[in-house]
Simulated scan of single mutants.
Amino acid sequence: MSDLPRWRERADAALQRALPDADQSPRRLHAAMRHAVLLGGKRMRPLLVHTAGAAFGADPAALDAPAVAVELIHAYSLVHDDLPAMDDDALRRGQPTVHVAFDEATAVLAGDALQSLAFEVLADTPVADAIRVELLRTLASAAGAAGMCGGQALDLDATGNGTALSVVQLERLHSLKTGALIRAAVRMGALCGDASPDELQRLDRYAAALGLAFQVRDDILDIEGDSATLGKTAGKDVAQDKATFPALIGLDASRARLQELRAAMDDALAPFGERANGLAELGRMAIERDR
């Protein structure tokens, strides 16, 4: 039986505990933060922390903080990504986006506060000091200009001229925008266990393929999915002339690329055997999901 439902329940409970009470002042800000985090979501990144950690014998109690921290960073990025100055979206996880449910200023502050809270939580991880510092370094690097924010900047530069990028450039964009946080989630889980440098490198290969596969599938779903199923506005990429894999190489080639990435994930995980079953399952979910 899969451990993913149990880890999902644990991650949700830890997120509930970490977020400020909506009844405490400033109530509007706290309510917006909870709206951004708790109303659905796949919890892919917390699950990656737990599956990677379990594969290397990490104490589950040590995994709660990095699992929460990476999801808070992800949630903050979505709040800001949905703003009118960015992707200007009104729907996220089947709910009104934060700036729609509240207002733009509150959405900006909620995103800022979620980012700060992520590092506050991560700083309390019950591990050795050296590992805690490495966890902080890993997440900070993945979230900043060398990672997620840098990828978002490249995406903004390409929006409105979606076929101007080469496939290599598009893959680099998404290795930063989506892949960096996914790699950080896997690495943080393994760092809390006994993973060796060589094993961490192999996990980075798995995570790089997973991050790219996640985005290729996202691009396909934007064309083939519907808003009710996706929980966000379908067809936005085409409408905004964004750089996507189907726009550059077509749907059939995008599906073929997904299978190449599936093989790359399997190859990276093969030496770990059954202890990597959870990571393999998350890889399959990323490729086969319908939302």
Rank of each mutant, 00 (worst) to 15 (best):
L117G: 08
D198A: 15
A65N: 12
H30P: 11
V37K: 07
D129T: 12
V37T: 08
D124W: 00
A18C: 13
Q215D: 05
T163H: 04
T229P: 10
L136E: 12
M33N: 11
V167A: 12
Q259M: 10
L29E: 14
A247D: 03
A185I: 03
P271V: 09
L47P: 05
A18V: 13
D222E: 14
F102Y: 10
A228S: 14
R93C: 05
H80C: 07
A213V: 09
G57T: 00
Y76C: 05
M33G: 09
D266A: 14
K236W: 02
E274I: 09
D59P: 00
M285H: 03
A213E: 12
D64A: 09
A54C: 08
V168Y: 01
S116H: 14
R172H: 15
A65Y: 03
S141A: 15
G160S: 09
K236I: 14
A268D: 01
Q95R: 15
A208F: 07
A280W: 01
G225Y: 02
F119W: 06
P46S: 09
A62W: 09
A253D: 13
T229L: 14
L114D: 07
G94P: 05
E199K: 09
L48F: 11
K232S: 10
L210P: 05
L176M: 13
L279G: 06
A107F: 02
G57L: 02
A118W: 03
R257T: 07
S116L: 13
T233Q: 13
G193L: 06
P5C: 10
